[in-house]
């Protein structure tokens, strides 16, 4: 822990492994870092596969670095539900920063559901925050549930889309349209980028979330960095608008959500421990598993006083 605060990359890497593998690992770590949290600004980068997020991330890192900021990067890739394995390939596109001491890149696999991604990612963000990064960039594929996760994890969410014939509009219909603070049309040298920007603005205007203020829609090219300076400027502008108060407000909500998540995880873990060792509970559980009893009734029967009895005084 001390070595983390001294800036040892190896210590940071090992701690990340610890929290990734075993959330209980954070129990020992958190009290020591809690009061140091909150310096890093966390940017989420999400969008459909093939939108060029990693290349864009690499350009964003470059821009942030040239302004002297230190950047931590978390690149998330999906775990195969069948084998438990994962191919973590985003790093390849961030090669320019491999030897930069002001950049730390960590790949993470989603490793199953139950807030797994969100929890471990949040903890890794905290570790990077304490390590002294000014920005933490979280890159994830935005399909299905993960995009909500990312919105609840980062301070600001950048949604990355790409003009792909009619598919661009298709992407707009997916759950991505409500979570962005900034929208980016990457690979903007492709035909249809401008018209997609217009369409996108139309879609966003109809969304109640943006009734008071429209999110910026920007054009970028991850391959050569065109539009990236403007994107980073927009991020900074949002950062400034959020200010300390709004940011704190957002983070308060997030901490609440985070607590609920950890609670869920702890309850389930505890239950697994109990059900694994107690023969009677195992038998009861088998009734649910076999389908002879519905789960709601079973819950009431096993926990007549509720699942948790908190210490309140």
């Amino acid at each position: 822990m001390g070595r983390l605060l001294e800036g040892s990359e190896i210590a940071l890497a090992k701690l990340i492994t610890l929290v990734e593998n075993n959330p209980a690992g954070m129990t020992g770590v958190m009290p020591m870092i809690q009061h140091r949290l909150g310096k890093a600004f966390c940017i989420g980068l999400t969008g459909p596969p093939g939108a060029g997020k990693s290349s864009l991330a690499s350009q964003v890192i470059k821009a942030l670095r040239s302004a002297g900021a230190k950047v931590g990067v978390i690149a998330v890739d999906p775990t195969s539900p069948f084998t438990g394995g994962a191919l973590l390939g985003d790093r390849v596109r961030m090669q320019d920063h491999y030897l930069d001491p002001g950049v730390f890149i960590r790949s993470m696999a989603t490793r199953g559901s139950l807030g797994g991604l969100a929890r471990a990612t949040k903890d890794v963000i905290k570790l990077m925050d304490v390590f002294g990064f000014d920005y933490v960039l979280v890159e994830t594929v935005g399909v299905g549930q993960t995009e909500l996760d990312i919105m609840q994890t980062t301070d600001i969410t950048v949604v990355v889309l790409v003009p792909e014939g009619g598919d661009g509009v298709q992407a707009m219909k997916a759950g991505l349209m409500e979570i962005g603070d900034i929208f980016v049309i990457n690979k903007s040298d492709r035909p249809g980028a401008d018209s997609m920007a217009v369409q996108l603005q139309g879609v966003l205007q109809m969304n109640p979330r943006y009734a008071s203020a429209m999110p910026p829609v920007m054009l970028t090219q991850g391959t050569d960095g065109k539009g990236v300076a403007e994107l980073v400027e927009a991020v900074r502008a949002r950062q400034a608008i959020l200010g300390d108060t709004d940011l704190e407000e957002r983070r308060r909500e997030k901490r609440n959500l985070e607590f609920e998540e950890i609670l869920k995880w702890a309850v389930v873990e505890e239950w697994k421990g109990l059900a694994g060792s107690d023969e009677k509970l195992k038998d009861r559980l088998s009734e649910v598993v076999e389908g002879s009893k519905d789960p709601y009734t079973m819950l009431r029967e096993i926990f007549p006083y509720g699942c948790i009895r908190p210490l309140t005084d």
């Binding site: 093939g50 290349s55 191919l87 390939g89 390849v92 596109r93 090669q95 320019d96 391959t223 050569d224």
Partner: peptide, 10 residues
Amino acid sequence: FGEYKEEAAF
């Protein structure tokens, strides 16, 4: 010209 950066390995 810039240098080529490996695109999507997989």
